[in-house]
Every structure is written in C-alpha cells, then in structure tokens.
C-alpha cells in the first residue's frame, strides 16, 4: 500500500508543476466573467488531468480523455458559447436576495462531505499495482475487462447514450411545411418569374466611393436608391441609412485647402 503513495523523480516534478496550475485554472473557471474563458480554463483542467493519467501509466485513458472530453464535449460547449459574441459577459447581480450565502454554504458543506467520505473510502481489497494490471499492455488489459467482466454495463451505457442522442434529435427536429426549393428550381424561377431584373443577381449595397456599408442602399443611375440592394432583415428592423445624402448633388464637393 505504501509503495503506491510514494512518487519519485520526474513524476513528482510533473505533479508539483501541473497540479497548482490545474487548481488555479479550476478556481479561475468559477471566477472569470466571460463564458468562453471559463470553457477554456475547464479544457485546460481536463488536459492536465489527462497528463496525470498518462504519467500514472493509464495511457489509453489519458489520450481518450483528450479526444473525447477536450476534443468533442468541450468543443461542442465552446461551439455554442461562441455564438454569444466576444464582448458579452455574465451578469453578477443577484436576482434573488440572499441566494449567494446559501449557495456558498451548501457548496462548502457538500464539498466537506465528499472529502470526508472519500477520505474514509477503501477499495475493499489490496490493490495489485500497475505493473500487474498493465501486464499484457494497457489497452489489452482494459479491453479484456470491458469486453468480458464489464460488457453488460458497457453496452447499457452505450445504449443510454444512443437513446439520449436520438432523443435530442427528435426534440430538435422540425418538419418543413413545404419542401425547400433546390438550387435548380431557384435558378429556373429566377428566369421565369415576372421580371428579369434579378436574374444575374441583386445589386450590391453601398454607394461607390462614398459609403460601402451593408445598410446603405445603392443608388440607381437616375439617383434613386435601389431597394433590392439591401437585406430584407435590415429593412424590417429599420436599420437602413438614407443614401440620398451620398448623391453627388447633395455632397459638399468644395475643396477646403489645408493651411
């Protein structure tokens, strides 16, 4: 038993270098304001754990931890968080008064309970040691256990995950009321609808050499703004700038000489 707890040499160095970083990152995850920063710090904690697993001869577990948790699960989190934008941060105002002390008390209490429980926990038998566990290779040893002794729980968990994935898909799925026009149908419609004006594509927004933003309607040769040159969404929101100010007649073209 004692031999398991002594760590020497490079592993000790690795531990004392990475463990404080992991703890700092874990605390930082709770304290930073931006959700993406939190996610990044969590990813760092996961990678540190993976390195610890590898250092303790659990090579397969360490690599799979990176592939599955950091590479897939955390990436999906990040994928969603990215959509909230770069300058949004969580509001820290309490909506229900007195919630914070209650939460802190509960968290500390639960943490203490867990630590005391785990501190008393025993395996129920003497550990056999990594050398014997990894005797026929780390991957082979795991595979032997997973596909013989633990094959039933393994299959149950995979069935559960597939059910969850299917459930998510069913909940998120919606049926279109009318089929989406294909690219070909759209092309045919462009040419066979009433006007040919848009057949070669709609005019782009902006006024040449004056203003190139998407919310400025282009000016037609006769000086009137082209309504089809801006997005319908912007029009509906009322975010359209009047482009008549950029007409040549209205622009102040007198040159002021700099002294």
């Amino acid at each position: 038993m004692q031999s398991l707890l002594t760590i020497q040499g490079p592993e000790t160095a690795l531990f004392w270098f990475l463990a404080p970083l992991a703890v700092l990152a874990a605390i930082g995850m709770l304290l930073v304001k931006k959700a993406v920063h939190s996610a990044l710090l969590l990813a760092w904690v996961m990678i540190t754990l993976a390195i610890f697993y590898i250092a303790q001869d659990a090579l397969f577990l360490g690599i799979v931890q990176v592939v599955v948790y950091t590479g897939a699960v955390m990436m999906l989190f990040l994928f969603i968080l990215m959509l909230v934008g770069v300058d949004s941060s969580d509001s820290l105002t309490e909506t229900i008064t007195g919630l914070r002390p209650i939460a802190i008390t509960a968290a500390v209490g639960f943490g203490g309970l867990m630590v005391s429980l785990l501190g008393h926990a025993t395996l129920g038998r003497e550990p056999i040691g990594l050398d014997i566990a990894n005797q026929s290779g780390n991957v082979q040893g795991l595979a032997e256990l997973l596909f013989s002794k633990y094959v039933w729980p393994f299959e149950v968990v995979s069935a559960l995950l597939i059910t969850a994935a299917l459930g998510a898909m069913v909940l998120a799925h919606h049926q279109r009321t009318n089929p989406r026009p294909t690219q070909r149908e759209q092309a045919v419609n462009r040419f066979r609808s009433g006007s040919l004006a848009g057949a070669a594509g709609l005019p782009g927004p902006g006024v040449f050499a004056r203003h190139n933003a998407v919310d400025v309607p282009a000016l037609l040769p006769d000086g009137t703004p082209a309504p089809s040159s801006i997005s319908a969404t912007l029009k509906a929101r009322g975010d359209v700038i009047d482009s008549s100010q950029f007409q040549l007649d209205n622009v102040d073209t007198t040159v002021v000489e700099e002294k």
């Binding site: 993406v36 990044l40 990813a43 990678i47 090579l59 397969f60 690599i63 799979v64 990176v66 592939v67 950091t70 590479g71 897939a72 990436m75 990040l78 994928f79 990215m82 770069v86 290779g137 780390n138 991957v139």
Partner: peptide, 25 residues
C-alpha cells in the same frame, strides 16, 4: 506509445481550438 494513432487524433482535436478561438476572439 501503444496508442500512437489515437495520440495523433488527440492533438488534431486540440488543434481545432486554435481555429475556433481565433474566429471567436
């Protein structure tokens, strides 16, 4: 390492972070 090919996949999946974070930041 006995899981060398998985290791390559792992580095690739961490590499995606570079792209995602560049786009976001």
């Amino acid at each position: 390492i006995p899981v060398g090919v998985l290791y390559v996949l792992a580095t690739a999946s961490v590499g995606v972070y570079g792209i995602v974070l560049a786009g976001w930041s």
